[in-house]
Design a protein around this nucleic acid. Structure first.
Lengths: 231, 231
DNA sequence: CGGCTGCTGACAGTTTATGGCAGCAGCATT
DNA sequence: AATGCTGCTGCCATAAACTGTCAGCAGCCG
């Protein structure tokens, strides 16, 4: 078991969380099955790693408000859900909780590899409340196209019901009131266009990458907007 | 440095994430400053801990899509923001992403101490879209009262503008369209009542705990509802 | 003050990690 | 098929880390 010690440290944290009141080192040592001396060393390790556990002589140990989540695996979509949710909280909740949401978002972003941090920028530009209608389009395929910077061929019906077929360069997905919107550069119009996913009749993912970086497109599109959209 | 190994494992993960292509064990060993033999053992440790890193002979190592967040400290409010955000995603997003939100929520809940898991049940029963008006009431104080099961004394004006003073047992906080709602047992009416936070004129937190468990109140209140509210 | 508790140092015994070596197996290219 | 590269495992001696015991000092409480 090469993880014996690490495991014990996590157990220690869990134990500390269980108690609301201060706990003496002796108790913690017994619960983790280790000597008192070693427990002190373990506590020191936790503090060195940034856990906010404090000890007071004559009192015991308390875990400061704040909870350490152990290392966790999230799938790409779960991560996107966390990010999207945090953004919504950051913009829609009361100030105090909103700040907490922004902080949580920053903490998650800080530990993400750089190529994933882009996702935070491009995923979910807007947030909206109501449950939206079912889509014909496969939203995960759209996200995949955005992530891989792939050209998307759309069979699309606009507001007047005119059907067109066009190749677009999708770079972001927005969540509006009832529908999702694909932000993309439209090859047909040579300009930025947005497409409601519920108006997509059919679509196909091309194997070829579009010739520009997603982040660049996003940045340019932002400049065309009058009001700052997010963040 | 009693954290040498743990730190190295995290470094290994980060390194694996940096590369998109498969990386040979030799490279990883050099980057982490360790022998090849030890690297193989480290990889085995990571796999044992659930990291989805896979190795193929003649190819190298690749980190499967999915991202391990290292242990992170979240404050109580940040955690609530994460939970609230995930719930919103779980109920408001498209099915696939909604599922991811629910999964993320479950993973977080699984590692939370039991007394914190209650928070997931009682925090944010409803979600609503629009930015709400400023409150006089200190929302964090309300949350504190709920968490500590404290009696709340309200100076409250109802819809007709009648002002009353009552002691209530708050057990949940709801987020509606424009306002937040405190769910509570009202000592005056001897029944469940809800109170809009923007109609609270003044309030005070009592030091005494109310005589019932928050979870029990929540459960009973749920039974009085016709439709299942959440989950 | 006295009891309890956190905290640190030293030291010896034990455990664990590490690196080198050897060998087997799978994948890709020739 | 054959070669080279690579993942993977077992073994073992050495080095490093961890652990427990003992001792002593300091801070908080009643």
């Amino acid at each position: 078991m090469p993880v014996a010690r690490s495991e014990r440290l996590l157990t220690l944290l869990q134990t500390l969380r269980r108690y609301r009141r201060p706990v003496t080192g002796t108790v913690l040592a017994e619960e983790t099955g280790v000597s008192l001396r070693t427990l002190y060393r373990d506590i020191a390790s936790l503090q060195a790693q940034g856990a906010m556990v404090e000890g007071e002589a004559g009192i015991g140990y308390v875990l400061k408000p704040g909870f350490m989540l152990p290392p966790m695996m999230f799938s790409e979509e779960e991560l996107e859900a966390l990010v999207l949710g945090s953004r919504w909280v950051a913009r829609a909740a009361e100030p105090r909780l909103a700040g907490a949401g922004a902080d949580a978002l920053a903490k998650i972003a800080a530990v993400l590899p750089s190529d994933m941090r882009e996702m935070i920028d491009s995923a979910a530009l807007f947030v909206g409340p109501k449950r939206r209608d079912e889509d014909k389009a496969d939203v995960s395929a759209i996200r995949k196209a955005i992530r891989l910077e792939r050209i998307l061929e759309l069979h699309y019906g606009d507001e007047q019901g005119r059907i067109s077929r066009r190749r677009v360069w999708p770079f972001a997905l927005g969540y509006f009131e009832h529908v999702r919107i694909i932000m993309a550069w439209c090859e047909l119009r040579q300009d930025f266009r947005h497409f409601r996913t519920d108006r997509i009749i059919d679509m196909a993912l091309h194997d070829v990458r579009y010739p520009r970086r997603r982040a660049v497109l996003l940045e340019e599109w932002r400049k065309t907007q009058d009001v700052p959209v997010e963040n």
